[in-house]
Design a protein around this nucleic acid. Structure first.
Lengths: 248, 248
DNA sequence: ACCTGAACACCGTTCAAGT
DNA sequence: ACCTGAACACCGTTCAAGT
């Protein structure tokens, strides 16, 4: 940041700061009052600039929301990088990806709601191509990290070489399972009424079963998977996790 | 239908017919021009009734959309019932659930988009409690069918008795995997650019791996899974499937 | 060159008036 | 009792006027 500060003009720095201010304000408003409350008028009023100025920064409301989503994905990338660097076997590192993903969304449930809003065609078609491209680039980073761990597993023999061609399928399998589970969880389907136990637990069990299906070593029945979950989650989130436990 | 026709007054029948007309019109409009094009004004004009009359049938636009979703879910229930009655092992019948789910959404991709729209909190909070309840009842039917097959598998020994307590987790695992995969697929994430092969294939492979993880007999490597896929899909959808193959 | 906010377009919803 | 459509509220977007 200080590097940027010296190379950019005062004007440019002011523009960047203002854009951050708009995004911060929108995010707070969103977290506190929900999507329908967030209007361009209210944002303009809160940041004390005119609507025209907001439109100088963002081509549309959808572009603004997309910029928020990019922030969330950047946060996720940080989590994924921690998972990648987790000190353990490839299976543990890959498990850390899944745990990181599900716990991040437990900690920030509204982020996923927003991403979901943007994934909706009716909304996405209003986002400018540039913003969409920006988000896709970030999403590819995330995918890349996951793919790399599976590749590591094959290279070191934890995963059989015959799965070389299935790398992307394996990543997609875990991704879709987690994505779907978290969406089902937050969309108010009465999972409890249907006899479902809390989602994070089910996800942890299901992804273990799935990876066992690929014979990814070491298998889950040869490890203390409850302990492993604890270790990974505190490595990724530290004390933040305690907030979740207290509310649970 | 003829039963209803004799017990209801002419007035009541007219009301029901008009409601169907509104829904048909909205659905056609949606399929042809997308969500943003569908407005209450345009629906009213197309059905040649006033907006007030539309509001006599549906408390809000969201209620109307929710009614459409209920239709889609009813269609899915038909597919699930066919899968339940599929003539084969429990594993095959359960596989038929997954195949039915993914192929139905390949055949009617816009249905899922609509359901997704409705799952979004910002939209769902505008749906009336009664409509929401109607939809949840239908969704529970779907879940019930899946749970029953897993129970059958345990009862006949295809699935080990120790999984009795995991029945809902198993259903949730498959459900979330399919739901997530189909949403990722239709939300324009450049799966191909990331090296992902078509979603239906990946789902079929992944759910087999997942169920193998539970040792659900017979395991996928003891069966011709490609042939099984063909058999199930034509049992569920018959000729409809050919449309998909031609476009693929 | 940048900011402003009145004005516009659009859309969901209501309700007094009509039959 | 039911239907109508003008009127209203709201919100995203634009652009002429101002500095």
């Amino acid at each position: 940041m200080s590097v940027l500060a010296t190379t950019l003009s005062r004007k440019q720095r002011e523009l960047i700061n203002r854009e951050e201010l708009i995004l911060d304000t929108a995010q707070t408003m969103l977290n506190e009052h929900g999507y329908n409350y967030v209007t361009m008028d209210r944002i303009a009023e809160a940041v004390e600039y005119s609507k025209g100025t907001i439109y100088n920064h963002f081509a549309s409301k959808e572009d603004l929301v997309c910029s928020l989503c990019c922030r969330f994905i950047k946060n996720l990338i940080d989590v994924f990088e921690k998972a990648y660097n987790y000190d353990g076997s490839t299976r543990e590192r890959y498990s850390a990806i899944g745990i990181g993903y599900s716990l991040y969304h437990q900690l920030h449930p509204l982020d996923l709601q927003n991403i979901q809003t943007l994934k909706n065609n009716a909304v996405r078609e209003k986002v400018s191509d540039e913003k969409l491209c920006e988000m896709e680039t970030l999403e590819q980073k995330i995918t890349k990290i996951s793919l790399n761990i599976v590749q590591d597993a094959i290279d070191c023999g934890d995963l059989d070489k015959k799965h070389q061609e299935n790398i992307s399928t394996i990543v997609f399998g875990c991704w879709s399972m987690h994505y779907g589970a978290l969406l089902l969880d937050q969309s108010d389907i009465p999972l409890h009424a249907l006899g479902f136990s809390p989602v994070v637990n089910m996800l942890w069990k299901n992804s273990n079963t799935y990876l066992d299906g690929y014979q990814w070593q070491p298998l889950s029945d040869s490890t203390d998977s409850k302990l492993l979950f604890e270790q990974i989650s505190s490595a990724l989130f530290g004390n933040e996790i305690n907030t979740l436990k207290r509310t649970a």
